[in-house]
Amino acid sequence: MKKSSLKIRHAKNYLFIGIIGLCSILLMIPLILIFYQLITLGGKSINLTFLTQIPKSPGESGGGIYNAIVGTTLLVALASLVSIPLGILTGVYISEYQNSRLSGAVRTCVDILQGTPSIVIGIIVYTWVVRPMSQFSAISGGVALGIMMLPVIIKTTEETLGLIPMSLKEASLALGVPYYKTILKVVIPTGFSGILTGILLSISRVAGETAPLLFTAFGNAFLTYSIFKPISAIPLLIFNYATSPYEEWHQLAWGASLLVVGMILLLNLVAKGVTKR
């Protein structure tokens, strides 16, 4: 082999590393820019008033996003209420009945649900819940977010239970423990941290969702604790205020953005910590 061709091959090798390295580093730029914007603009608006007051009318400065914080909390709580138990049970079902045809179909449905556009879930819940109640409501928003949480919880539950050795289940069954108690008292507690991770990730997935709430929770400029009334949520507030013409509302929206990103990162961090343990 000629020396020069070897040189070319080495040069190509380094060039390649250079290119993929550069592309990877380039991606950091928008990330840094986004966070710079969030922290400088958002940081300015976050203070006690921001966290404890409701928004003022357009043009007036001050005010906060307390109504949206309450709304997001309530919506996530409503969503969790049904989707956590249903998600865990379904996860147990598809991991326990691996060979049945129904469970194969359920697994496909979970994949479909995970790929379903969030806006489609929004219009579906509008048709199923909002229209019959003829009212936008927190409860419909909770349903929409709950549907979005399901696939994440189901998948992580299934994956976690798949890692639990068969022998543990056998140990319990051999002690004369009924199957249902074996699942509830041995299998699920053993996979607890994995399932918890799934729940936290699913919450972090929906905490920033806007599209499914547009026609369900709808948004509300005032504070409400009622689950039958339209309610605000942090991402909805960001959308409405960001697209408004008022400088003061843009300020609030930046603050809300920083808050929601912080919340999501915190949830992910906790989820990671839980997995490590």
Binding site: A171, V177, T190
Partner: peptide
């Protein structure tokens, strides 16, 4: 009424030694 011990040791990871011994009672 019939105890069984398996090829690989399989104590319950969520339980203490104490709880593992009486696991048959606790779980039932």
């Amino acid at each position: 009424k019939i105890g069984m011990v398996f090829q690989r040791p399989n104590p319950f990871p969520t339980m203490s030694i104490f709880e593992n011994v009486i696991a048959g009672y606790l779980l039932n």
